[in-house]
Simulated assay, not measured.
Amino acid sequence: MAAIKKQSLVDQIYQRLRENIITMQLPLGSHLNVNELQSQMGVSCTPIREAINRLQQEGLVVYENNVGARVLMLDEHDVREIQELAATLQVTAVRLALRQGDRQRMALEIREQIRRYEQALTPQEEVGAVHELVGVFYHNCGNKRLDNSMIAIQGQQLLLRYLYCSCAGHGKNQADFERIYQGVLKNDPDAIIAALRENAERALPGILRCLKEKTS
């Protein structure tokens, strides 16, 4: 039986703030006041600052001179840039993972995430399944620098996925994920990349519409 891992105080604060940002309970552009967070959470400023620094590394928090930390702002240009960068990284991750990883194990991991996605009851559960599905290629690409590059924007990607999954009438994407699964089985990186690209393109209008609704 695997040991139960205890989360540090910093981890707990980080996870709480991260979820609140991704689900937009903390609105885009809102100021993160350390003193207010201390009062709300009943902890010292040190773990809060460490958690905020981690969120900055993920691209969810930015620092401004004379202002301090705030949740990132997004407009249509930002969304397109994030999607373009993610697509570029995904191409490399997919090709390296199929070249160097265990395809049978990756296929099993992707099948499990498809199952989680199909059974998801909330946007958070959908987002988690999609995030882990795409993450299979990064975890198996054998390139830590590439994996670290994705970490730098993964918070922003999660936020965009949440926007899409929480948008009314967004629809499910099992067909795209099945194509990804089959691409792994057949060792066909081009098919996987095409499915990922088409999925992102299909989601873009919904993301932009939901972003406009939540920021207007």
Rank of each mutant, 00 (worst) to 15 (best):
M1T: 10
M1Q: 10
K5W: 04
Q7S: 14
S8M: 10
S8Y: 11
Y14K: 14
L17V: 03
P27L: 03
L28Y: 06
L28P: 08
G29E: 06
H31K: 10
N35G: 06
E36F: 05
S39V: 08
Q40C: 07
G42S: 05
C45M: 11
P47Y: 09
G59K: 06
V61Y: 14
V67W: 15
M73P: 00
E76H: 12
V79H: 08
I82D: 00
A86T: 04
A97G: 03
R103C: 06
R105L: 12
M106E: 05
L108P: 01
E109W: 10
R111I: 03
R111M: 11
E112Q: 15
I114L: 14
Y117L: 04
E125N: 04
E125D: 10
A129H: 08
V134W: 14
Y138W: 04
H139W: 01
C141P: 01
K144I: 00
K144G: 00
D147V: 00
A152R: 15
L160M: 02
Y162C: 00
Y162R: 01
C167G: 05
G171W: 11
K172D: 12
A175T: 05
E178G: 00
E178C: 02
Y181T: 04
I193R: 09
A194E: 07
R197Y: 13
E201N: 08
R209A: 08
L211Y: 09
K212Y: 02
K214P: 02
